[in-house]
Nucleic acid binder design. Structure first.
Lengths: 448, 448
DNA sequence: ATGTTGGCTAGAAGCCGACAA
DNA sequence: TTGTCGGCTTCTAGCCAACAT
């Protein structure tokens, strides 16, 4: 194809405009490994849809508090903003290793669309980056106790760690791995016991106490492209971290988010947001192409069946089946006609930990296609799907879409200042698109 | 006097309006001991002057970042707001034990002054609350090392701790003290060694590691009114704590503060702020009476000599002499005619750690009085003042002011809805006062 | 294949007075 | 009066294989 220039999602510096928060030197593969398999950041230079409501909910989730407060209305702040994504930098909290991304967004002013709006010459999301070799293990009580070391899953040790010299008795080596802040950690890796197993001994307890890990937290190791060992952590869903920064009230935080977005929207100036994938209940910066694909391709209806990806314990993915049980605004007063999490859903398997009961249209894969009532059997996967098994290949529906509407692919390439080439709907100007949004808020929705 | 009802500065609940941040169960004496001897919170129900600029600077100080960013202008947000102080609750950060206060402020709308604006029937600042017995010690290397315990200053142990049974050999007892979160800490208190000294042994190291204390940090003990032992900590000025909350950009924080204040000012609705006394470079919520006393009583001039209180190492106070070297806005663009920190000053003693080079008029005590060139010798303290000695009794100038203008006392009592009784200038209505503020921003200033 | 436990040991934590400052 | 140190003791951290699941 035309993927001659590959723009990395991460820009190594963050020194523009309002920034200066902190320089990003984070390894991108490690960041994504920590963020989880479902998190993908929109490519720099592309158009995205920003939902202030979802942004607020991220703040709400990081406190343990609901919004519903005497927050001023921003009548000029719509429930969604189309923005140009200027930059994305990856970060990790110095205290907790929590990963987050800093994005600079510039609201697109319809009047300016024919000027040099899309002056960045390209923005590309490479979907075919190889998933790096990695493993993820949830720490047991024994792993975190002071009594011993870390028991390494056999597969993991053989896949990720440098091979041991098995002529030694017992086989031992020194392991070195860098964390998100590029700090080096050293472990003694030994293969011993009856039956034999891989263990990390000396150095392990320093790591556990240094990172303040507890049973239930997870550790993950990956090898980067230079086959250097990297390590990250994921904490269990403990009580929200930032009880409050002791310097800023929750109210001010909410207001700050909304005021910043409203001001940026009014002036078409860039603003800065933080996206914390493991705190946010749902993404709130969506590639415009993904949004359009979902809104204009899916026949949405009550009772509709769909599938949706979730993350597994071991950082894999699997799909769950669900049914749309309601279509309504999450906050009909403040965010009327927002499409962010406006679907109430039920799940086929109620078994394991409660799943979200509100999702957005672009998060789900309808099982009834807009063009076929049921996909022809020839497109179905050969082996029967097993519940609980990893399910990583693209879904049948994805393939269907790609055949039916090749212009809606996952790869977006912006080559000039034309709206439609930046992810917009084909044949529509941005002004037309936004008029559609205002006049008919849920265009192709059919309520049975 | 008429101090029949004594309103505590702390309201035990915080469940009003936009609140719900966290319930405050903090011991007021301990909070103030941790905050330091110079921190006094305005009484609930009184009028205060709020400086958005100072509030911004508190946020700036808690990050390591200057403001100067693409922050929208709030043309309707003046450099100072007169507010009714609805509530004050005391808090302590769960992670760091940092103390801070949550204040609910309602901007006073001049049009409403004759209505039920001051419906709270009183608001009283009792200045004669006895300073509780306390001591404060900066931890040494030995105190924080794992090699031993804590060496208790002799005076401190005898004044604060329960008396030992000196018939025992050696005298020992178990000590229990609660921290700001009401957690109980237990220490073995022993009097031994050659020469004899008070030590905390068993339990001490748990405390040090639990609170993550290092040499240079301070610990303080007080006895509350029930002679229960309480303990607090004060950290040395390490790098700012909240590097950023990983969920909110600095920009949004600044904007949030300003937008919240602007919205509240426009609608005369309450808003919430956090005041962190050990982070803020200077108070930004000033009792209106204190402000007026300073603005209308002090003949301000370049080269003026003054004294100002500072906190000592051991949490005492002493005064330093200084000279006004300049009068200018700290930020003439954004905060024109703000009186917050608009005095540039130099200090007589340049010796110990750099003192602030910008202060506000209400923080200083002019040495040349408006009524006397030099106070008559009869008012002078009998014993000569020694530099470096604690200096706790009211200054001569304070006494002079109290004799000359008894209505400007430290105790403010609001009995009805009259502006002047709530701390305003005698004989002036609030509208007149605000007009003065707008027309002649620095009324009695004389530039030589 | 891997979580937990008892046994053992090396080394850190921690109590003490000596000795300054 | 109190900070630091050497000496000594105690106890936990931490390595090991056995055993259980």
């Amino acid at each position: 194809g035309n993927n001659v220039f590959v723009a990395p999602t991460v820009t190594p510096t963050s020194g523009e405009g309002g920034g200066g928060e902190k320089k990003s030197t984070i390894n991108s593969e490690l960041w994504h490994a920590c963020a989880g398999p479902l998190v993908s950041l929109p490519p720099v230079g592309s158009l995205v849809v920003y939902f202030p409501q979802g942004h607020s909910e991220q703040v709400a989730a990081s406190m343990q508090k609901d919004v519903k407060a005497p927050i001023p209305n921003y009548p000029n702040l719509p429930s969604k903003l189309i923005c140009l994504l200027h930059s994305v930098t990856l970060h990790a909290d110095a205290e907790t290793d929590e990963v987050y991304a800093r994005m600079s967004l510039q609201p697109v002013n319809p009047q300016q669309q024919n000027t040099t709006l899309l002056s960045t010459d390209y923005g590309l999301k490479s979907n075919n980056k190889p998933q790096p070799e990695f493993f993820c293990k949830t720490l047991t009580a024994s792993d975190t106790s002071t009594h011993g070391g870390f028991s390494v899953p056999r597969r993991a040790a053989e896949k990720i760690f440098p091979p041991l010299d098995f002529s030694m008795q017992p086989p031992v080596q020194e392991l070195q791995a860098r964390d998100l802040h590029a700090n080096l950690w050293t472990f003694r890796h030994i293969y011993r016991g009856q039956p034999k197993r891989h263990l990390l001994t000396t150095g392990w307890s320093l790591f556990v106490s240094g990172k303040r890990l507890f049973a239930g937290d997870s550790i993950l190791f990956i090898r980067d492209e230079n086959s250097q060992l990297l390590l990250g952590i994921r904490r269990a869903n403990r009580q929200p971290t930032n009880i409050s920064s002791s310097v800023l009230s929750c109210d001010s935080m909410y207001i700050g988010i909304l005021a910043a977005a409203a001001h940026a929207a009014a002036n078409s100036t860039p603003f800065t947001i933080f996206y914390n994938p493991r705190v946010s209940p749902s993404e709130f910066v969506i590639p415009l192409a993904k949004y359009n694909k979902a809104i204009y391709s899916n026949q949405l209806s009550l009772g509709m069946r769909f599938r949706m990806m979730f993350e597994t314990e071991e950082s894999g993915t699997r799909r769950y089946m669900g049914t749309v049980t309601g279509i309504s605004d999450l906050d009909p007063v403040r965010w009327k006609n927002s499409q962010w999490c406006n679907l109430q859903v039920g799940w086929d398997e109620t078994s394991v930990g409660e799943r979200r009961n509100r999702v957005s249209l672009w998060e789900i894969e309808p099982v009834s296609a807009p063009f076929f009532i049921c996909p022809p059997p020839i497109f179905r996967s050969k082996r029967p799907r097993q519940p609980g098994m990893p399910d990583d290949e693209p879904s049948d529906m994805d393939n269907l879409f790609k055949r039916a509407m090749p212009w809606l692919g996952d790869e977006i390439c912006i080559k000039d200042s034309q709206f439609q080439n930046a992810g917009g709907m084909p044949g529509l100007s941005l002004v037309q698109w936004m008029n559609m949004q205002q006049n008919a808020q849920n265009p192709p929705v059919v309520i049975k």
